[in-house]
């Protein structure tokens, strides 16, 4: 379980202080898929970096399976928005996926099997020898997802992973994340600014306020587990849920909780 308790992050530069995160508390159960959505500039990325152990919070704690996070924890993998900069251009697709496994000291046979398996799972079989920059943006992000999945994390953090790909690729990648999550039973924390994406993907959606950030609201997405782009998005319940999230985000931008009845 991922527990974020009273998390606070203040950036200091000289005399100036910027309070990015004020007081964030939420939990993600093992095997859950939670989407964090908030207005732009609400410190989503700061939050994710604190959870990933890449950034030291000013106050509060992050616990992963009971252990406090003080550096990048084992069993956690991250997919960055900037796939082009996160993948190493000097390595082939295969080497990019394999390198973290080497650092994990997995034996060669296991590495080879994992690389093959995950590239196949993300629909990139046959591109092992290509370099990331020879692939389209969507394919590059698939490589980054394969790299994270091959690491066999118990928790997968995704930082607006599809913000830079076109709408059709994005729909495909959303279904890929749902499929991988259902198959691997991995805990996924997915950050996005896209309300539709959050409702479509998540089993729960946590809404953040604008900066300085607190948790504005959270809801359980009671849509059926089998989702598809066409029917789920046309479901009246989907519309209700997205309206609720939308209103909360709008209220967050105005800086107060919405008075709308809970769904």
């Amino acid at each position: 379980m991922l527990e974020v308790t009273s998390l606070k992050k203040v950036y200091r530069s000289g005399e100036r202080e910027v309070e990015a995160l004020r007081d964030l508390t939420f939990t993600v159960d093992n095997g859950d898929l939670v989407c964090l959505v908030g207005p732009s500039g609400c410190g989503k990325t700061t939050l994710l970096r604190c959870i990933a152990g890449l950034l030291e919070p000013t106050a509060g704690t992050v616990r992963l399976d009971g252990h406090p996070v003080s550096g990048p924890p084992p069993g956690l993998a991250m997919v960055f928005q900037e796939y082009g900069r996160s993948l190493f251009p000097w390595m082939s697709v295969r080497d990019n996926v394999e390198l973290p496994l080497k650092q994990k000291k997995l034996p060669r046979e296991r590495r080879t099997a994992l690389v093959e398996e995950t590239l196949d799972a993300v629909g990139l079989a046959g591109t092992e020898k290509a370099y990331p920059w020879q692939l389209s943006g969507g394919m590059q992000q698939r490589v980054a997802i394969a790299r994270a999945v091959a690491y066999e994390p118990s928790t997968l953090l995704m930082d607006e992973p599809f913000a830079a790909v076109d709408a059709q690729t994005r729909a495909d990648l959303e279904d890929l994340v749902r499929a991988l999550w259902q198959r691997l039973r991995v805990t996924v924390l997915f950050i996005t600014h896209d309300i539709d994406e959050a409702v479509y993907l998540g089993r729960r959606v946590v809404m953040l306020s604008s900066s300085p950030t607190v948790v504005q609201d959270e809801i359980t997405i009671d849509l059926p587990a089998e989702r598809d782009q066409l029917h789920t998005r046309a479901d009246p319940r989907f519309t209700e849920l997205r309206t609720h999230v939308y209103e909360q985000i709008q209220a967050a931008k105005r800086g107060r909780p919405s008075t709308e009845a809970a769904v």
Partner: peptide, 9 residues
Amino acid sequence: IADETARSF
């Protein structure tokens, strides 16, 4: 980002 990727793994 490349360095954070390496650190996160």
